[in-house]
Design a protein around this nucleic acid. Structure first.
Lengths: 347, 347
DNA sequence: ATGAAAGCGCTAACAT
DNA sequence: ATGTTAGCGCTTTCAT
């Protein structure tokens, strides 16, 4: 029992396939009475337009892809353990659905082992593109619509660059640093990941300028992104063993690393927040329920995802992208790890 | 500049489209030398087979859909906050990719506002189907291949029922209950959600039988699934205000509710685990980092997802489903909340 | 307002 | 081993 086609409907309604097509797509003009008959026939038959056939004709499938690049780098089965990505994917799903688009999760579609269907997507969302991103290059070359979340470092916006959703890393870095400063910290260090994405690079740059402006000596450690707190532990050790007084404030971009930093500080007898204030650059459940709870920059991945989907959908329709200037995204969440300590309370 | 088609490649290689098709699909037989020419031509042109056109012909797109039903019920943007689903989706993505399939996240495709493309999927994975699930009915009626994770309650396996991945709710219930018993608990209560899925229903049934067997009085509370701990709080109150001695052991199926139960017990002056042992029926980061850490049944959603994808992929290829009998999935993770308390230590 | 017909890019009989 | 050809189900000129 074959699935009914447009032809079956046409026959049953006593009209041509054109008329059926028109009544469903809204193209052309079809007399109301005829529409009735067509719809009735379609209903009786349980007819549903074949999305693939439509896609072939229209050259548009109604699916966008979210590239889960962490998939390749980190332990893939833990993909959604990265709080940020999990929230992003969830929100992207919802936003896509609202736009009438399906959302496909794909890993790097540049590779040969990419699921064929990955390439059938109408457009791509690429989170955290890196310098000279091969995926971005490939999409650009192939003329496939895409938006990135965060700039492609090295491709400043303005000149024919990829459209992107602003993650406001500069503003957020200042937010975190000024907050640490306001708690009394004066030896403020920065711990970043090593991926060459906007988040790491821009934060580092802003931190250096800020340190100069505040007249403090910058102290940064870069450790590879990972799903455990190992990198954070290594970073803390390198910070503490650098010679000179230990930092009294640390801005750690990766949430897992923030936990590692705190653990190591504790092992070295430094109390958080009394001796060292810590702020993480990305929020996660584990930070909320840690002891002490860890302050962090909430990037608001749900809002970023929404904006990315909307921007891409607009692009697909040839509409101008929505403008979010004036409604900042990302905020500082102050928790126990960066509570100001009155000098009196310090031993 | 149009995207090159199979025809362009054929022309450039000086062969017919058939030959090009064959060299790429592996069908028919093509002389190695010819294959070389074809591939070279394809490479020069930057040719990639059009997945949609292939899909139209083969009647198969290479995409499967994961139905995120929670999407409709709960706050959608928090979809992936449900630890279980986040892990499931992540693992499903990876497994699909490995099978050469794309994974689409869709909400209920029965609704009219379903993204068209949702229906283009070759098959569906439905997690936690409920009694008389309309989605299951729809898929079955439409003849769309699907697998459920957990049985469709009321449709016992064996007779032409939907193929499903066994979540072993019966075995896991016994695991949790026997564990509570072994810690010395004798007044063991059950808190479940209200969705009519296998997890809630089967656990309840097993609990009743188990209570009878152990000669204890069953005590169950059902509270609607939610993303906060409110339901758990209500459940605990109802348990404590029921009259009679308070329970000394609770099996709470929803992880958020477990936290609510524990919070309320504490407020009522009952200590966990000293006075009441608690085990959650689903694991989550929040349970791991809670104080005390909460014992739980780890459903191993990653493994369930893998099995679901493999089963569906097999079905799509007309292969028999892989057999997992003998390799149980799901395990008990004992943490502080259900540590046995030696009678001596009790006040 | 309705319909005939030409494809979209590809696969799969069926020749040769 | 290679080529011809008829569609897959639909949209879209272009007639009528």
């Amino acid at each position: 029992m074959r699935r009914p086609t447009i032809r079956d409907v046409a026959r049953r309604a006593g009209v041509s396939v054109t008329t059926v097509s028109h009544t469903f797509t809204g193209n052309g003009t079809v007399a109301p009475s005829t529409q009735q008959r067509v719809r009735a026939a379609a209903h009786d038959l349980g007819y549903r337009p074949d999305v693939i056939a439509q896609g072939l004709r229209r050259n548009r499938l109604g699916v966008i892809a979210l590239v889960a690049r962490q998939l390749d780098a980190l332990r893939p089965e833990l993909l959604f353990d990265v709080d940020y990505f999990a929230r992003f994917a969830g929100a992207a799903t919802v936003a896509s659905l609202a736009e009438g688009l399906g959302l496909m999760l794909v890993s790097d579609p540049t590779g040969p082992r990419a699921a064929g269907a990955a390439l059938a997507s109408d457009g791509f969302i690429v989170t955290e593109p890196v310098t000279d991103d091969p995926l971005v290059a490939m999409l650009a070359r192939a003329g496939v619509p895409f938006v990135t979340v965060g700039e492609v470092p090295g491709h400043p916006p303005g000149e024919g660059s990829a459209p992107h959703v602003d993650i406001e890393s500069g503003r957020l870095a200042l937010l975190a640093l000024d907050h640490l400063w306001s708690t009394g910290a004066r030896r403020i260090a920065l711990v970043t990941g090593t991926d060459r994405n906007e988040w790491n690079l821009r934060t580092t740059a802003v931190y250096r300028r800020w340190a100069q402006h505040r007249r403090i000596t910058p102290s940064t450690v870069h450790v590879a992104e990972s799903l455990d707190d190992e990198g954070g532990r290594r970073a803390a050790i390198s910070l503490l063993d650098a010679g000179g007084p230990p930092p009294d404030g640390v801005y750690v971009l990766t949430s897992n690393h923030a936990l590692g930093v705190i653990a190591t500080l504790a092992e070295r007898g430094l109390r958080v927040p009394d001796d060292v204030r810590v702020v993480a650059g990305s929020d996660a459940e584990s930070l909320r329920s840690a002891d002490p709870a860890v302050s962090s920059i909430d990037l608001q991945p749900d809002e970023l995802a929404r904006r990315a989907v909307l921007a891409l959908a607009a692009r697909l329709d040839g509409r101008p992208p929505p403008d979010h200037a004036g409604t900042p995204v990302g905020r500082l969440v102050v928790r126990a790890s960066s509570a100001a300590t009155p000098p009196g309370r310090r031993p």
